[in-house]
Design a binder for these strands. Sequence first.
DNA 1: GTTGACCCTCACATAGATGTGAAGGTTCGA
DNA 2: TCGAACCTTCACATCTATGTGAGGGTCAAC
Lengths: 129, 129
Amino acid sequence: MRIGELSERTGTPRRLLRYYEEQGLIVADRAPNGYRDYDESNVDRVMQIRGLLDAGLPTRIIKQILPCLDKPRVIHFADATPEMLATLTHERDRITDRISCLIRNRDAIGEYLEAVSVNRRPEAVPTGS
Amino acid sequence: MRIGELSERTGTPRRLLRYYEEQGLIVADRAPNGYRDYDESNVDRVMQIRGLLDAGLPTRIIKQILPCLDKPRVIHFADATPEMLATLTHERDRITDRISCLIRNRDAIGEYLEAVSVNRRPEAVPTGS
DNA sequence: GTTGACCCTCACATAGATGTGAAGGTTCGA
DNA sequence: TCGAACCTTCACATCTATGTGAGGGTCAAC
């Protein structure tokens, strides 16, 4: 598929698809006329990328994570240098931190919304404190 | 406490503490000489802010979330306009999306690391596919 | 064979979070 | 009273992900 279709199917501006390619996050074949030619797997990959970017990861890190997401993984074990494994471990832990932070805050928002929906103007809310 | 101490205790450059204030995320009293004067609660608040920024939320959104985090909440119910509640609901859902994305990817990294630790150079990995 | 809808590269612009430093006031201890 | 270590504001710089558009090629349909 060409860039327009990928753009539509992923809701991503063409500009960014080219940018992700420049950053080494996706690869595209080229048709004889120079047009980029994407295969089906790029749809999922682009969604992954967007999700991770939105979650605050920079392209530099995403690039290192992406090989983990391909199944079967066999081919990619060549990348598994000790430094790479250390990086991955570290990033995994940082992601875990992010997750707990987000869960905490989401739950706080949830509780707030709950409290508001129960009583638009409460004098006191049982917070346990 | 003054900005230097808050900076040290939160691991945040002074520059950013001033920036967060400018964005309306924190407030500081002023000593007679003009120095910012923070109270204890700002330590936690700054950590919240940094966590959320790191998780990809812009200061504009963080500003709207912060009131949810204060307990007791009683005072803040004044902010609970319908638009605000809609925004919060929406942001909560977006955060939930981010969380699932991060969990998916973290687990994928985990599986990758696991696979590597079991066998540095496997011919085939049981992926279920 | 021209038009319209694609595609290409290149390049400059923007926005948000952050780095850095200048120019200057305050406070405190030697 | 001087210097060190704070603090202030202001302003320009940087990086990353994006927006936008110019200048130009390709191709299918009419």
